[in-house]
Design a protein around this nucleic acid. Structure first.
Lengths: 342, 342
DNA sequence: ATCTCTTCCTTATTCGTATAAGTAGAGTTT
DNA sequence: AAACTCTACTTATACGAATAAGGAAGAGAT
């Protein structure tokens, strides 16, 4: 940050005080500053190339016009789990919406021993959007600080914060039910970490619901959970091919995992959907790319991003107002990865 | 931003002046503040839950510890072209490296009529990393402001800024040469916009070089350029299948496009690599997912992100120092999308 | 001629932090 | 005992912008 043009310089150039500059800048000039002065100020601003310093403004206003986005990391202090295109789609929508509303995005993982609160307070963030990870450790501190928070796909909401998500239990049900309708009974469940009250746990419950409804016994052996990623999907498919030859279908809770599953079966000499059917989740572009294209449970990720920002702005405007809980609908998109074996 | 704990509160609590607090905070206490006082200050900090306000620090230091990342948009004021996983990988590495060095990331597209400079000055960004888009409009203003800039994959470098990229001409050569070595002579080139002095132009030159070397005539009809994306790849493949049946290979300048190309050929009833071979670029995970897996020109994207930050920090530390130009090496990764027809 | 009211600006202060410069008091030197 | 030197702080100011409160100049009223 080199020497910059300040309102002081502009004031000098225009031959007025800094207060006048400020009034002109903030359009509070209308009643009591002459058009000539306004013109002179604007000319000076133009001439010197003045640009407001938002750090100074943030200090004065106690408002930074910055929204923080917290994205899951593989582990604290590590990189983002960004290989899942879900995040790119989401972030793209968040950035666009925030920008058109006059906000910018600060994205950050957390370093070890650092909380989101600290980041928020550090930068005076006006709000934080948290994706998938619930800050259990210091939730009470959050409530105290009253920093507007939007929880995305977090399942511990006590209506103290805005939240947005999908009905994951229903999503899990939709996927499993779809497979059951197509004659499958030995259905493996492949997901990322099944955390207490997390997205994957809900989807697992939904899967369970569908089995129950169809009178299919639940088999713990068919539940696989690891890293949300292509590799784990592939490994798991190999495992299934080897150790569970009776499995005819897999529900993977992310398209990126489903793609890995297809790859794994292929490596094991099994074809999808010839030998085994696969259903994914999300409907990111991978679902189209993969071969066969993926039948998957679709959610509107861009909409999720857009609404997350709307909720954040809402919480900024009215920090103590009622908290909303938005549910993005889910639907099965049929493509080519499922075969009817009924 | 609600009422926050400031050093003033801490000072009161500890019974010392704010200056003392500041000295303790910045470890400038060692010589002249007693251990007892330091302990008392730290206790007060702990008790009150004090967190420094970086806006105030930014104002005082003229340093924000914020690095801006500018990502191409489909068009100004629109969303990011984030569907290409290249950006996710890159950003993930940038964020991680920046964070471990004490910086955070402000990511932003530009609204219509707004320049990167303005964003940078607004937020007092210490540096900007610009991806793929060269700010021709106001490059001189940049040079004046002396905001450290790192150009990533920008090809107009006049050594006024640090830059990092790959030898794209060589990359284009590698891809085309690889196909030629496998007996192909009618090779289509499919890319995003071929901009003057841009990445795709260089890759096209490299493709041309390889044809020349092999004595294969250059055919303008086989050059296709549109949006970097899956859809355009698919459309183009259909076009090629219909109108250029003699084409036996395609070089797509991004894996995501190559995946689309494979899909397009498949829709046209042509198999890859059976009927036509495909080479991609980047080696993102799509290359593995796609079926057949993609032979592609690999670059280390994470490394690119890491080095981009290093260069930014370098420019921050020594704004007028010599500018470096880092080239990330390229290599062909052989997978299953190319058939030898020699 | 004085008072009041506008109009159009300026002065002074604040936001939270960092730091150069100042100082009180104890100890040391001569 | 005056002068000096440390030690361990404090005071005062600056960073850039916003704004409440103040004030000068002129118009109009009495």
């Amino acid at each position: 940050m080199s020497r910059r043009v300040t309102i002081r310089d502009v004031a000098k150039e225009a031959g007025v005080s800094t207060a006048t500059i400020s009034y002109v800048l903030n359009n509070k000039a209308s009643e009591s500053i002459t058009p000539e002065t306004i013109a002179r100020v604007n000319a000076a601003i133009e001439k010197l190339g003045y640009v407001p310093n938002l750090s100074a403004r943030a200090l004065r206003y106690r408002k930074s016009n910055l929204i923080g986005v917290v994205i899951p990391q593989t582990e604290p202090g590590k990189e983002f789990m960004f290989s899942n295109p879900f995040y790119g789609d989401f972030l793209s929508a968040v950035e666009y919406t925030a920008r058109t509303r006059g906000y910018r995005l600060l994205i950050s993982g957390t370093s070890v021993g650092q909380s989101y609160i600290e980041i928020a307070q550090n930068h005076g963030l006006d709000a934080i959007i948290i994706l998938g990870i619930y800050p259990t450790d210091d939730i009470n501190a959050y409530k105290e600080t009253k920093i507007p928070l939007v929880l995305v796909d977090c399942y511990r909401n006590d209506h103290f914060f805005h939240s947005i998500g999908t009905n994951d239990r229903h999503g899990g049900y939709l996927a499993a039910h779809y497979l059951i309708r197509h004659g499958h009974r030995r259905i493996a469940f492949v997901s990322g970490a099944v955390e207490e009250v997390g997205v994957n746990q809900k989807r697992l419950f939904g899967y369970h619901d569908a089995l129950d409804e169809a009178g299919i016994p639940y088999d713990r052996e068919l539940i696989f959970s690891g890293n949300v990623g292509y590799e784990y999907g592939a490994e798991t498919a190999l495992d299934i091919a080897r150790n569970h030859p009776d499995v005819t279908a897999v529900f993977a809770t992310a398209d990126i995992m489903a793609a890995g599953v297809i790859k794994g079966f292929s490596d094991a000499g099994l074809s999808v959907p010839g030998n085994v059917s696969v259903v994914g989740f999300d409907d990111v572009f991978i679902a189209n790319i993969s071969s066969p294209s993926l039948t998957t449970v679709r959610q509107n990720i861009k909409e999720k991003g857009r609404v997350a920002v709307e909720l954040a702005l809402d919480a900024i405007d009215d920090p103590s107002g009622p908290k909303r809980e938005v549910i993005i609908p889910l639907e099965v998109v049929e493509r080519d990865s499922v075969r009817d074996i009924g």
